[in-house]
Structure formats: C-alpha cells, structure tokens
Amino acid sequence: MNIEISEIANLPSRFGDFKVKAFKEGCKEHLVIFKKNLDETPIVRVHSECLTGDAIGSLKCDCRDQLEHALKLASKTNGMVIYLRQEGRNIGLLNKINAYALQDKGFNTVEANHQLGFAADERTYEIVIFILNHFNINKIKLLTNNPRKIESLEGIEIVERIPIIMKSNPHNEAYLNVKKDEMGHLL
C-alpha cells in the first residue's frame, strides 16, 4: 500500500475540539478525526462517506445521524472517527444517484446496486487497519452495526461492539430493514 499521510491539525467543531489527519490512498483521501488524548482502547467509528446524508441531510438513510452520534461520542470518550471516502458503499456518487433513481422505481438498495452491476456493498477496510496501526492502536471498541466491518479488521482486537441505532423515519424504514434482513446488519 502506497499511502501519503498528512500532518496533524486542529479541528474545533460543534462536537468538540479534535485533531485531524488525512491518509491518501490512490485517489481517495480519508480523514481521521480524533481526540488529542486517545483512550488506550478507544471507541472507533469507521464511517463511509455519504454526501447526500452527511452534508445535505437526506432522510433516505441514517448516515448523518450516525456520524453526528459518533463525533459526540468520540469527543466525550477520547475516541476516533475514521471517515472513509467510499461514497455509496464504494460505487461512487454518480452510481449512487443512479441507484437512488432505481429505488424511486421500486428497487431496494441491494437490488439497485445489482441492477447497476455492483455487489450489495463494494467497500473495503484495509486502510482502516493501516490507520489503526499508524496510531499504534491494536484494541478498539467498534461503533458499528455492520458485521463486515467486524470481520475485516484482522489483527485488531475488538473488545466490544457498540451498536449505533438511530431512530428511523418513513423515508428510511425500508432501507434499514434491507440492511438488517439482506445485509445482516445488527439492528
């Protein structure tokens, strides 16, 4: 892996005062948001980019709620959020919007990805292991509902899985049910 790593910078935010560091993997630039005095076994959220949810507040998903919850928790517990640039489960923004259009026609999120020629979830997590090793972290409390994240962090001891359950709304209920029923999310 050829990874470029930035310096550490301060990032005061509405969720608390953080440090940030960027990791460039090919054309993807990931961001690590963390407290200066990380816990020995920090709470870590691996969050994949969702422009429509994170930035615009889409009600089709629970991404923004999860991100904000994770940042608040990281601030309170000296934890970390690893923000991965894997838009639309790593199919990219253009394809994600095409998947949205298919969902508007009645396909669920998994079916829409399949219609576009993608797996239900194209994300990978090798960079997370690299980042945690860079910070000399080998034990974490993982804030996730996704069993693939748990399974993929080889060499990292997950001492606890912390659920991240957000309140559903009429626009994301079916989406959350598909994540649970078809993708095995622990909801």
Rank of each mutant, 00 (worst) to 15 (best):
K21M: 12
F34W: 04
A74Q: 00
Y175C: 08
T41H: 00
F107A: 13
I131T: 05
F107M: 14
G26V: 09
L84V: 04
L142H: 02
D62T: 10
K60P: 02
N136Y: 11
A55V: 14
C27F: 15
N133P: 10
G53A: 15
I5M: 05
V128N: 00
P12V: 03
K35V: 00
L116H: 07
V81R: 00
S6M: 04
A119K: 15
L142R: 04
I158Q: 08
P147S: 07
I158T: 14
K180R: 15
H69S: 11
P42F: 10
I33Y: 00
H185R: 03
V81E: 01
T41P: 00
N108V: 01
I162V: 14
I3V: 15
E111N: 04
D104T: 04
K28D: 15
E160G: 00
P42C: 08
L143Q: 06
Q66H: 02
K21N: 06
V159Y: 00
K72N: 14
K180Q: 13
I97A: 11
N90W: 07
K28G: 11
I97G: 12
F118H: 03
A120T: 09
I165D: 06
C27G: 14
L84H: 01
N113R: 09
L84S: 01
A101H: 07
F135S: 06
I3R: 11
Y175S: 04
L59E: 07
K96Q: 13
S58I: 06
Q103A: 06
Q115G: 01
E160C: 00
I165Q: 06
N90M: 05
T77N: 14
L153N: 06
K179R: 11
L143R: 02
E87C: 14
D65L: 14
L11M: 10
G88D: 10
E111R: 01
E160H: 01
L153I: 05
K19V: 08
L93T: 14
M166P: 00
E25W: 10
D65Y: 13
A70I: 00
I131Y: 05
I8C: 08
A120C: 08
I43S: 10
I43H: 10
G16K: 00
L67M: 09
A22V: 12
S48V: 04
N146I: 05
S6D: 03
I127F: 00
E151G: 06
L116Q: 12
R123T: 05
S58P: 04
T52R: 12
I97P: 09
I43G: 06
H114L: 09
V110I: 12
I5K: 08
I158S: 03
L73M: 15
L116R: 09
C63Y: 04
L143N: 10
E157H: 05
N2F: 01
N172G: 12
N138F: 11
E173C: 13
G117Y: 13
L31T: 14
A174S: 02
P42S: 08
G16C: 07
K36W: 01
S152P: 02
D62G: 05
N108S: 01
R148D: 11
M166E: 08
L84T: 03
N113G: 05
S13K: 08
Q115P: 02
L84N: 02
L187Y: 13
